[in-house]
Design a protein around this nucleic acid. Structure first.
Lengths: 342, 342
DNA sequence: TGTTAGCACTCGATAACTTCGAGTGCTAAT
DNA sequence: ATTAGCACTCGAAGTTATCGAGTGCTAACA
């Protein structure tokens, strides 16, 4: 068990290291805290904390930096989420409270704002659509050679795509296809729909609307896009600021990873209810061992859960990040509920 | 006037410098060319070329690198666009010749492919839509609270946006608005439309469909998006490879610039018919003084002109870039013509 | 007059060495 | 248990030495 003084020292050390980025020595702690003791005493305590694995040295005579275990302990026991300043609160509620017209805009602006406010990289995933049902499908002939396919779900997702219509298709084929889709897909969950699209529907198309087979491929892709719930990432460039000495190759792989939706979901999409922090090697990813990932979810009642995450250095200002994230989760829940209900 | 030998030396020097990135000395040139003379002779020639301003030293006893004037001369007089290898040609025609279904896909894939093949950064601008006419406008009620606006032009652009419908709106309001738009906007050029949207239309809306005023704002934004012709940029990360020692701040500004469509258009959108190369300081932009920009246009008969550009280091392989770009301009012309005519 | 071997000279890159100071651990006294 | 004092460590930053690719110039030569 740590003594009270050790707790104060550990807390101070982490704060100081977060704000300076430099290893922290006994004198620095002496000055920064109200501890009534000499630097030698603090040195003894530091040596103790090191023995317990909470802090470590960068070389034999350096100051101390927090270890993974130290951060873990700090986050689980010491850290207080920081209140978000009045003016920032106002910006958030102004931007996200405004009458934004589309789901995508809300996600996008959240990510932007979150990365702006934290100076880290922000990831926002829209409410998960797995269990949503297809409520509408239509094909709209725009002109002689273009068709628009539109699908809707009960979660408010609306997806559309324009594609060229092969010459062989006419208005009555469109109606046939629409009917097939309405009869067999509308009302089912998207998971079901995806399955049927590969099993049953091709057969039906071939039987009742054989010359629409080519068009069918295009329509299928609309569903694919919709099945991926939306994600937005913002502030990728901030990585350049918070990991100064990263080498080019690593940076390139990192950015490639962040652009790949698959990798991103793997990273962030194990939804737990509360805040989850993964520090350095806790994220099981080579490229991210100097990063931390703070994740939380927002919950739009029955409409599903979404994820908000912040990717920053292991030495991030966890207290601020937690504070901001908490505001965002509440605001998003509120904004989206309004979006769905209005 | 340069002697034949000087031309050979200049040409060799630029090629060697492009492939090694190191200043080139007299011996290197001796080995790399078929010149029947000693290194001393070549040194004399180099000294001559330097006096004429085609090459320069990085320090008093270094090898030579091409100067801006040297590159200029090389590009204008010496360089031969390089034939594109069979397999690359095949990839290009496979990807762009395939039945891609949407304009945007074509642009996007072109940019991707171009950056992959050159290892530089590729910018592709769609055919300019300035003089295109609005040929269709519709509003589609998707459900009780969502409307989709769709606009089409005679150049094949189709743009749509879904937005929430204020509760005050009903079906008949939609019809009213659609009628207003059809009467006053359809058939006009997009430039005209943009003007009318700000002058005449608000009045008409207020007069005949006053409770649709709020909705009008959303519709206006669809037009705004369509007025910006499409652009795609790909291979931004390649910058990390070809300008190794760029500092973080510069990189950040650079990426910010490349993400801003305004800046990008300013850079690339002074359409000339043929190839245009801007070397280093010739690009009037602080951030780009170590870069070169090779631009060309593709021409889809009456449907408009588009721009393809490659951004790379001043020491780029101009011959390859020219070769690849030439293939792309032809392929794009062909692909798009097919797109419009089919 | 153009070419070339020979040589002294230049200067960046790299490595080796020096200095400095923040920080530590240990000891002995309080 | 605390602390003043001190020897010790080691990275950062600065200085110096070494190396070699490359130059320009001179003088000899075809």
């Amino acid at each position: 068990m740590l003594t009270k003084r050790q707790l104060i020292i550990l807390d101070a050390l982490i704060r100081l290291y977060t704000s300076t980025g430099q290893p922290i020595g006994s004198k620095t702690i002496l000055i920064a805290t109200a501890i009534d003791a000499s630097s030698a005493t603090i040195r003894n305590e530091l040596s103790q904390l090191e023995k317990l694995g909470f802090i470590q040295k960068t070389h034999s005579s350096s100051g101390r930096i927090p270890s993974l275990k130290g951060y873990r302990f700090y986050i689980d026991n010491l850290m207080q989420p920081q209140e978000v300043a009045e003016d920032k609160l106002k910006v958030i509620s102004d931007v996200l409270g405004a009458h934004v017209k589309q789901m995508d805009d809300i996600m996008y602006q959240s990510a932007q704002l979150l990365s702006d406010l934290t100076h880290y990289t922000a990831i926002v995933l829209g409410p998960k659509a797995e269990t949503s049902r297809l409520t509408g499908f239509r094909l709209l002939a725009l002109n002689d050679n273009h068709v628009m396919a539109i699908i809707q779900t009960d979660k408010g997702t609306i997806e559309n795509k324009v594609f060229r219509m092969p010459k062989t298709i006419n208005e009555s084929d469109l109606v046939k296809v629409t009917n097939i889709f309405n009869q067999h897909l509308v009302g089912h969950t998207l998971t079901d729909v995806t399955q049927k699209l590969q099993r049953d529907i091709p057969l039906l198309i071939r039987k009742y609307a054989s010359n629409a087979a080519e068009m069918f491929l295009s329509i299928e892709s609309v569903f694919k896009e919709s099945a991926e719930s939306r994600h937005h990432i913002s502030g990728k460039l901030n990585i350049l600021d918070f990991s100064e000495n990263i080498d080019t190759q690593k940076l390139k792989s990192l950015y490639t990873m962040l652009d790949s939706s698959g990798d991103l979901y793997a990273l962030v999409d194990q939804v737990n209810d509360d805040f989850v922090v993964k520090i350095g090697e806790e994220i099981d990813h080579d490229l991210l061992k100097d990063f931390s990932l703070v994740t939380t979810t927002y919950n739009v009642s029955s409409y599903g859960k979404g994820v908000i995450a912040v990717l920053g250095p292991t030495s991030m200002a966890y207290d601020e990040t937690f504070g901001v994230l908490d505001v965002f989760r509440k605001q998003l829940t509120h904004t989206l509920l309004e979006y769905y209900l209005e």
